[in-house]
């Protein structure tokens, strides 16, 4: 792989990234707002392996997703968030496998590759305000929390919302706010958002959410079952407020062979 930030060896990479991020954070005076970037070190080797798996997937699907590597800060967030703290105790061994896992209540924590890809598609900066509909375990919110200034996350299933809120507080993701409730009308008090992730299954994409997207903002929605994401929908709002939608198959597969 060329031209990416992930050619060199881990864990030196991680240390370097952490140092850089800390310096940046101190320099911008945002240290208090940022979540702790010190990972739970006992799982660091597994996390590094997971990051390599994600890189492999990204490389393999580069034609489908139109890029050979995801943004460095996204990969850094993936390398930092302690995913094993977001899965049920009996599944901790599988926490860093590149696959979705059940988290109870009929819900799942998404496959790391999909989380990374969705986060990358949002294209958010450090100053971004992000809305998530469907908190689930809180993992996606934590990844976003490592990148954005503020993350607002809504969960319709009360026990999940409560658990995720406690978990994110315990892990000191202070810039992530979780609320139990109906996500159809978004979170008007904090709108507009630079990015919106809708991870909760719905029969359609709620049009009111589009109104809460800033000009230049992006919305990402995975479509498929709990265990298998079939496509990602990316909605972009341009400066004039017009939206365009892209449907992305996160896999390199063309239905037609040559000749058509």
């Amino acid at each position: 792989m060329s031209g990416t930030a992930y050619e060199y060896e881990l864990p030196e990479t991680m240390t370097l990234i952490r140092c850089l991020q800390r310096i940046t954070a101190v320099a911008t005076g945002l240290l208090i707002l940022l979540p702790p970037l010190v990972a739970d070190d006992s799982a660091a080797p597994e996390r590094a392996r997971m990051v390599r798996l994600i890189e492999d997937d990204v490389r393999a699907t580069r034609l489908a997703i139109d890029k050979a590597a995801l943004a460095a800060d996204v990969m850094s967030a993936m390398a930092t968030v302690p995913r094993h703290r977001f899965v049920p105790a009996d599944l901790r061994k599988a926490a860093y496998d590149n696959r979705p896992l059940p988290i109870g209540h009929g819900q799942t924590i998404s496959q790391p590759y999909i989380v990374a890809l969705m986060t990358d598609l949002l294209g958010i900066g450090t100053d971004a305000r992000v809305l998530e509909i469907g908190t689930g375990s809180g993992y996606q919110a934590a990844v976003l929390g490592g990148l954005a200034r503020e993350v607002y996350s809504m969960e319709i299933i009360r026990p999940l919302a409560d658990t995720a809120r406690e978990r994110l507080q315990r892990l000191a993701y202070n810039n992530v706010t979780v609320r139990h409730g109906d996500g159809y009308y978004g979170w008007p008090e904090h709108a507009p958002f630079d990015g919106i992730v809708v991870t909760a299954a719905a029969s359609h994409i709620p049009p009111p959410l589009i109104a809460q997207l800033k000009p230049g903002g992006r919305m990402v929605i995975p479509v498929g079952s709990r265990f298998m994401v079939q496509q990602l929908v990316l909605i972009e709002k341009d400066a004039s407020g017009d939206t365009t939608t892209r449907q992305i198959l996160p896999v390199r597969f063309v239905p037609l062979t040559g000749g058509h």
Binding site: A60, R252, F253
Partner: peptide
């Protein structure tokens, strides 16, 4: 065979 090769990369829904 093609789908099985893509298994790890989100190919299973196919």
């Amino acid at each position: 065979p093609e789908i099985l090769r893509l298994r790890g990369q989100g190919g299973m829904p196919l």
